[in-house]
Design a protein around this nucleic acid. Sequence first.
RNA 1: GGGGCCGUAGCUCAAUUGGUUAGAGUGUCGGACUGUCGAUCCGAAGGUUGCGGGUUCAAGUCCCGUCGGCCUCGCCA
Length: 589
Amino acid sequence: MLRTATCGQLRADQIGQTVTLCGWADKYRDHGGVVFIDLRDRYGITQIAFRMEESSEIQQLSSTIRHEDVIQVTGEVVSRGEDNKNPKLATGEIELRANHLVVLNKSKTPPFEPRGESLANEELRLQYRFIDLRRPALQNKMFLRHQLTRSVRNYFDELDFIEIETPILGRSSPEGARDYLVPSRVHEGAFYALPQSPQLFKQILMVSGYDRYYQIAKCFRDEDLRADRQPEFSQIDIEMSFVEQEDILSAIDGLLARMVKDVRGEKLPTPLPRYTHAEVMERFGTDKPDLRFGMELTDISDLVEESGFGVFKNTVGSGGKVRGLCVPGGAEKYSRRVLDNDLKNLVGEYGAKGLAYFKVANGGLDSSIAKFFDEKEQAAIVERMGGNDGDLLVFVADTYPVTCAALAALRNHLAKDLELYDPKELNCLWVVEFPLVTWNEDENRWDAEHHPFCAVHPDDVEYFESDPSKIRALSYDLVCNGYEAASGSIRIHDPAIQQKIFDLLNIDAEEAEERFGFLLQALRYGAPPHGGIALGLDRWVMLMTGTDNIRDVIAFPKTQKASDLMMGAPSEVDQRQLRDLNIKIDLPE
RNA sequence: GGGGCCGUAGCUCAAUUGGUUAGAGUGUCGGACUGUCGAUCCGAAGGUUGCGGGUUCAAGUCCCGUCGGCCUCGCCA
């Protein structure tokens, strides 16, 4: 070993010992006769003192050290004394008095330094990711990610699960997300697809008798990115046989409690609360509500359907809804300018044509449109909304789905702006009883809400003919702080029900065989009842570290346009490689 | 595919209504200094204002296009 200790470990107990440290020069302070270097590794920072009176040769060499040089230093651990100790450092009571210095690797002047308050812009940090990853903040996140996966593996190991790897090179399926394709050299003109998830493999593993499976699986989806979405991401993937929904939910309750205990040292109360899909849509307007704060959606359609305000009246008259939020103390906080521009534009992104608002004053409404409502109507609205003087009432009048989407986004925006929650809190819940299918207006057909192998609520089989939108699925999402943090379902193991689903989704037998034949085949050879779930690992690390940027929790992430700025991927390739694959590039004009 | 924000020294930023030689801090280089920990002091170098075009007597600033980064709608069974 080139070192006998790390830069984070020395304390007053080690005073008098001779140790050797290796690390990066974080900072240097050259006083002429004495040079101080803060030496950094991932364990911490230790101050090294190079003193002329010890050795003028070493003192001179030390004065050439610059930011990010990698050095090896040997010396005696000495007390800094009361006057010179540094309470900001864990090692601040001591320093290393160097008598030996080796420059292991001189660094070019770095384009930015992995310290300091103001970060370089993200583009540069991604290009020099190897420097950015030296930042303690990022190193802490990488370590937490490691702790999290270790906790997951320990938990499942103790419950007799086995981890099984599934292929990366698979078969393309046209439904779902866009596939990443890999051309085959051996099979001319044919392509593999990278997995969007190990979904079909894990069901087949159940058929094969591996009744408790898990995997930390890489998944790939060629769709546009978001702050919480990368083209390549990780799932904690789970499948179990001979289970019902209840068993999956309680197994995951246990996993989360274990994760939170191992990683944060906190107790997560379980079982987690459960809400139906219909309930969260009504109360929060979204299937992934953030329950760290209240400010629920309230429907006032019945109060305003006869009002003098045409927008409200006509919307309700044509089957729409008028729903709103009561923003505590919002009357002062939000000016007309902000309401008429910023917030109106925000709801506009979700299809809302406008944003109506009132300030609550003296038990009534104060607004340019208040005159359209008589005293009784005003009092009823204030009472229904739970408004007090000084509150702001905001309303969207539109179709039910638009009021949901617009108000859910507005609710999140306002809560963040008003700091209605503690950003460190973890608030988790289950959302159950999702609809099995949703009507696709554009394609004029029913689409699976989860996937075509999702089991049906036994009470709802009768709706297949009468009203498929009423069929509830045995599917469930885990929601945490407004993120979809896990999603799963009980699967169909009954060929008759499976056929009903295919019929409903308009997938004929030939097409089904073509697309999922291998799974259907497997299900005919003794498939146990089974179900599972997958947790978004990256999102869990985000939640646990309190970041809202997924790139912070992935060592080598991609940009919004799916590029790797460090290695320069994707890139063009040799003509010879293309010839091997029989590929001709034909770019549009 | 649509909408929005951003791009000025190695880095973080400034630059009045479009107006003279584009500034500051930090880093870098040189010098001084034996107890600093955001060291200090003296000096120096460092710019295709992302790129291309246009308007104008005059463009970092206005307009169009383009490249890149970020956020977002659609998309993500």
